[in-house]
């Protein structure tokens, strides 16, 4: 049985990890870009960011003061057992958000949209967001937190099947060029693309693609994987780099997630994660022990299933054996 206080402690720790320590996969992606960046201002910016990440880890202070909109992604195993129920788990994550905001400290960014009321703890109506997913055959709980800025770099457009890959490329470029000027989108970053679904699903998939997959990860569909690499290359050939300066560092990686959509449409969303890509994950085992990592491992084969029922690979092998 996993106790709620174990969940709350682990959630506090990933809030600190996300805010302070840049994930290794992402840092390596940026180091690769530094080495190939020919624009001197853009290169200066990236090198300064590397220094900043060193300072953040050394001082245990946030790498970026804009805490964005801190949020959680929770994956619960079918066989996981925890005290307090689902609402108890949500309360623990809200409590962890408030505590981490004070203790790290994070900037209390969350305000009422109309009255601008700020509780100084990043908790409020519908905040923090908690998204749920499930995993068969396991007894652990994975919790990921993401701190992403939220004002620039994201857009949605209803395309149609006849617009084809040209339409996808154009809208991808439109979003990068529009929000890349002056570096409003805080590029270079991982760019996530949602294709299909309904409008809300399309936005959710693109956001998750940006925030919950690591640099170098490819979509399991080989044609989608090829499109990811093609879009990354196109993004890096705009002639723009960090802060909108001349350069070629725009897209640290491109991730595409798809959902079955209306037969007449091809909705598309584009989401630019931050140059300070802040994400951290914990897996809480059935005995309450916690293991920390930076790869959310959110998009499992189960998440991307296409059929009515699901057979886990282990069931397959049992049957074939």
């Amino acid at each position: 049985m996993i106790e709620l206080n174990q969940i709350e402690e682990a959630a506090c720790r990933i809030m600190a990890n996300a805010a302070i320590d840049i994930p290794d996969d992402y840092r390596q992606g940026i180091e690769t870009m530094v080495n190939s960046e020919s624009g001197d201002l853009s290169c200066f910016v990236l090198k300064t960011m590397l220094e900043n990440w060193d300072a953040a880890t050394a001082d245990r202070r946030p790498m970026c003061a804009d805490s964005g909109l801190p949020r959680f992604y929770v994956k619960v195993g079918d066989n996981a057992r925890f005290s307090g129920g689902f609402t108890g788990l949500e309360r623990a994550l809200r409590s962890a958000t408030a505590r981490a905001t004070h203790d790290i400290p994070l900037r209390p960014n969350r305000v009422h949209p109309l009255w601008r009321t700020d509780h100084n703890n990043n908790v409020g109506i519908n905040a923090p967001e908690i998204e749920w997913s499930f995993e068969p055959d396991v007894d652990w709980i994975d919790i990921t937190t993401v701190h992403k800025g939220g004002l620039f770099g994201t857009d949605y457009r209803m395309l149609f099947p006849g617009d084809g890959v040209d339409g996808i490329k154009r809208f991808f470029l439109d979003t990068l060029v529009a929000f890349g000027k002056r570096g409003l989108a805080c590029q270079p970053a991982i760019v996530g693309i949602g294709l299909g679904g309904s409008k809300d699903t399309c936005m959710v998939l693109g956001k998750q693609a940006a925030c919950l997959r690591t640099v170098g990860d490819r979509n399991p569909d080989p044609k989608i994987a090829a499109l990811e690499l093609e879009l990354q290359e196109i993004g890096n050939s705009i002639g723009m780099g960090a802060m909108g300066f001349v350069g070629k560092s725009m897209v640290a990686d491109c991730h595409i997630e798809v959902g079955y959509t209306h037969t007449g449409g091809m909705p598309m969303s584009v989401h630019t994660f931050c140059l300070s890509s802040r994400r951290a994950t914990v897996r809480i085992a059935a005995d309450g022990s916690a293991a920390y990592r930076t790869d959310p491992q959110w998009f499992t084969p189960y998440m991307r299933r296409e059929t009515v029922s699901w057979q886990s690979p282990s069931q397959d092998s049992r049957q074939s054996g």
Binding site: F44, V45, L46, T48, M49, E51, N52, W53, A55, A56, D59, R61, P62, M63, C64, A65, D66, G183, C186, A242, M243, C274, L275, S276
Partner: peptide, 14 residues
């Protein structure tokens, strides 16, 4: 004056 990269939160915090 513009900040760099958006942002160097830790360097400025120091």
């Amino acid at each position: 004056l513009t900040t760099v990269g958006y942002g160097t939160g830790a360097l400025l915090g120091r």
